[in-house]
């Protein structure tokens, strides 16, 4: 976990309270909130997806449904397989086996650009600002269905000029919202790390997606900006979009997520609304609480912790065993 983040036991400095606390969506699932629980209205349904790198199983998800129209947080320690799952779902990587659907359509094996066109866009953990394009050019690249992007019609400015102007207008509005409008004609390479995160998110929104997948959107964003970034994410939900985001900071997760999926060592180990997931003793003790800095492997007692203080207690171990983590491979990552 990166050092920019406040320690979990000082929540007041970490999270300036949101001006208006927005209501959470509830009643998303059918039956008990356990890993793989069915959702009333899922936008993504994952079945038996497994991805291995050599001997390492990075992702092994039996069943997972992401609810539509709400904000879902995907959490889990480093190396849990969150980014790999993102890569698989967006067509940037291919699984060893498994299938998944987006909006009722099977998109396993569909190339990344087609997935994006269907309305499922993502950002990257390692930000991908297009450095030698200006900020506004970055934004305009995000818009879908541009006539001027086809080879022959690009040679006839009359065919795309008007559309391009409209796109630019939309881009400038979004940039203003993300407080990047003053930078619109600068190279993206001149932005700070946090500004690039903002730009990448704004650029993704230019495509007017149905589902936005954000991989660690807050990483490197300064605390003053985090609140507005959180508000942006909440706005997306208000505008009818579905958000799936990866985040390490539990206060942020608690603050904006309607649903939380916990991954560890490739598997989904817990699911639920933020309050109950965080009260799930296994999750609290094992991951969110005292042992936050530790790998789940330490907590499960598979290998020795570095500090004596963090020694696993038997009760936690039992609960985690119950949660199915015991099946994890013996092999150390």
């Amino acid at each position: 976990m990166s050092s920019e983040f406040p320690a979990p036991d000082e929540p007041t400095t970490a999270m300036p309270a949101s001006p208006v606390e927005r209501p959470k969506s509830t009643g998303l699932h059918v039956g008990d909130a356990k890993p793989g629980v069915a959702k009333i209205d899922p936008i993504i349904v994952v079945d038996g997806v497994r991805r291995t790198f050599g001997g390492l199983t990075a992702v092994d998800v039996e069943h997972l449904e992401i609810p539509r129209g709400v904000i879902t947080a995907l959490i889990g320690p480093n190396g849990a397989g969150k980014t790999t799952l993102f890569n698989l779902l967006t067509g940037f990587d291919k699984p060893n086996e498994g299938s998944w659907t987006f909006d009722g359509t099977s998109i396993s094996g569909v190339p990344a650009y087609k997935v994006a066109r269907m309305g499922q866009v993502r950002t990257f953990q390692l930000t991908k600002a297009l450095g030698l394009l200006t900020v506004v050019e970055n934004m305009k690249l995000g818009a879908k269905g541009q006539r001027g992007e086809r080879f022959w019609s690009s040679l006839i400015p009359a065919a795309w000029r008007k559309q391009d102007d409209e796109i630019e207008e939309r881009a400038m509005k979004l940039l203003a919202k993300f407080k990047l409008d003053a930078k619109s004609n600068d190279f993206a390479a001149s932005l700070s790390g946090g500004q690039r995160k903002l730009l990448e998110m704004a650029r993704a929104l230019m495509s007017q997606p149905k589902l936005v997948m954000l991989d660690e959107p807050m990483a490197g964003v300064n605390p003053a900006l985090t609140q507005s970034l959180l508000d942006h994410i909440l706005d997306l939900k208000d505008e009818g979009m579905t958000v799936l985001f990866v985040e390490h900071d539990m206060h942020m997760v608690r603050h904006i997520a309607d649903w939380v999926v916990v991954m560890a060592e490739g598997r989904v180990v817990a699911e639920g609304d933020p309050y109950s997931v965080m009260q799930d003793p296994a999750v609290i003790d094992a991951y969110l609480g005292a042992h936050q800095e530790l790998d789940l492997g330490v907590v499960t007692g598979r290998y020795a912790p570095e500090g004596a203080e963090a020694a696993p207690d038997a009760e936690v171990q039992e609960k985690l065993l119950a949660a199915g983590i015991a099946e994890l491979e013996e092999e150390e990552k």
Partner: peptide
Amino acid sequence: DAVRALGK
């Protein structure tokens, strides 16, 4: 990859 992620 960034461009592919934008549907191109």
